[in-house]
Design a binder for these strands. Structure first.
Lengths: 207, 207, 207, 207
DNA sequence: GATGAATGAGTGTTCATTCAT
DNA sequence: TATGAATGAACACTCATTCAT
């Protein structure tokens, strides 16, 4: 469809410009020009500059959440799921760097803390990340493959912080190690910190 | 000095307003009004709005770096230094939340994109953080109290990412666990992931 | 006809929205949406946003003029016609408040400045109002039931101003008295100001 | 003062442009250019385009209210005050046509009925007009020089409507009679409608 | 006739910075 | 040193109108 083609062109262009210059420094007229559409067309399709941003946000995080859910669907042990999670996370971000950069760099800054309300769909998606991390840990706790000296939820929050912070510093150029290495390190250290040293309660594969 | 009193008023006010509304949403006229000075006075003292920000940045990070250096100066074992580091980091951020919020929330987006050059004094201070983390780990590797399956530098980067990400998510309201709990969790998990399970090469206290 | 049904829906919707928010604040897309038609359909039927307005204007003022002409057709004395006019005017406006509000509130500012040329059909209708007022007064002057110390035309202009201003202030919420009261007051004061105190030249009822 | 000179230049220019093209059609950049100042200066002094308008409004209506109050201060009989009021009103408007045109033509239209709240200073000034009209009538009722078959307040509303409507239609070009003539007609007809035909209760001059 | 996606000139407003006093 | 009035380029956004289908 022409419609989709134009929307897509706007999203692609905006994604690039946001990544290059930051959300605040990319102007709507610039995006329109680069996308080959009139400025009004931006507003016809997305309602506002924020609307473009939030569409990119949604698309990016949706794929991200789906990936984690897919891992959980495999029904491997908690330990194995955690290992797979570490590999997936850094791999996913590595493969979608541009989109992820925008999300990581620009999101919470321009939407003020207050505006970023608890009930918004975006906020719910962000909360869902911690929820999925929790499910991985809970599975390991249940099947005895993981050992947590702290509550599941709070450990999940810290785990997420590790991933988030490492990725963000990497994107900001403050970390030199390449993404694949970061993934392997995360897998190794997370397991050292969390894997049970005793034999699991249940057989290797959960039913 | 009157001069210093005015500068300090500006910094204090700016710090509060940046924290409340974000760097981009706090205007210079607003800062001047709230600080009880003329708008031009801001420019006499700090040259630009960015100048105010960078002064706050410097002050905040200087205390932070000094704190870590002080830890290293105690010459405890690597393992003990790492434990103390975890406690110090979250405690420090907790005690300077306002300043830190600005640094964590506003800094990178605003100055990072291109302009945040490798040679700048601020960049060097940021790099110094990883360097100090590395020294903690290197000490543990040398005295046998820590065990690193990956290079010191890269492990330091990940460690820093953990701290940075956890703190930032906390500041953005995406983490519920309170700061002291985060500190205890970091200490516990970092040691589980990095502490040597064998007896240390050297006696407990380095001479 | 489908055509007429659509036109009518557009006019009804536009009338409501103009009254609610003012001509300038009601958008064509909003009117189209509320009327259940496509935006382009507005242009097929009325050519422009102004076209919709002018159609409403014509419909409203046509009924108004017809009402006054009907009064004149009754061939009562000038005094009686003037009394009937006062009652009719406020009653008519009261019964068509929505339409009249638009005409009174939005018309002149929007089309008057320059563009509201002497020759336009709308201008002629507006001029016709004063003309009909003049005919009422002229009749009274002729039959001796009214007594005018000033020329008929100019008195008619002032009379019209009274009606127009009272109505407009009422619509703008600056007058508290209800419409029926305004009608009774107009009738009373107009007669006090204009009715002849001597016996009429002609018998009560004109042949 | 330079300050006042610039403000005044802006007000004078805006007044002219609003009168020429209407509030909505005069742009801020146009006003700034014509006034010989930067566009930002408009906002420095008046905060918004509306702010300029409201300043003009206040200045115009303040002189108007002061004029009526001065009449009331003379303590002549109600009848004489009413006659003086009629002459003053049309004379005042005639002498400040440009300013008055803006007020009459543009005011209630662009500030929506809802926004034009009861408590606003502007609304209070408008309400004060009717109040002063009432005081004129009340004086005449008290001293027996005026005779009102309807309540003072409502008669004042109608009187005001007469003045307002006549003036507005004149400004819109729908009335041909010149201002001085309108003043004389108002005086004559108002007295005919309201003056007592009996001897006044009190001597001619109120103490 | 009917549609509605696309248009783009135009708008009011912002705000970091300057500079004469 | 301190002031604050003045600046003006830049911005996100609006909306009546068009036209290919």
């Amino acid at each position: 469809m022409t419609d989709t083609a134009r929307s897509r062109a706007i999203l692609t262009t905006a994604s690039r410009l946001f990544a290059e210059k930051g959300y605040g420094n990319a102007t709507t007229s610039e995006i329109a020009r680069a996308a080959g559409v009139a400025e009004g067309t931006l507003y016809h399709h997305f309602g506002s500059k924020d609307g473009i941003f939030l569409t990119l946000f949604d698309e990016t995080i949706d794929g991200f959440l789906a990936g984690i859910e897919e891992l959980l669907g495999r029904r491997t042990t908690g330990r194995e799921t955690l290992a797979a999670l570490a590999r997936f996370l850094f791999d996913y971000v590595s493969r979608h760097q541009e989109r992820y950069l925008i999300l990581l760099r620009d999101f919470p800054v321009h939407l003020t803390v207050q505006q970023f309300a608890k009930g918004s769909p975006q906020r719910e998606k962000l909360d869902r990340v911690t929820e999925l991390f929790s499910r991985v840990l809970a599975r390991g706790k249940a099947d005895g493959t993981l050992e947590l000296p702290f509550p599941v939820r709070e450990t999940a929050e810290m785990l997420r912080g590790t991933f988030y912070g490492t990725t963000r510093l990497k994107m900001l150029g403050l970390i030199q190690a390449p993404f694949p290495r970061l993934g392997r390190m995360a897998e190794s250290y997370w397991l050292k910190a969390l894997a049970s040293r005793r034999a699991p309660k249940t057989p290797r594969r959960t039913p």
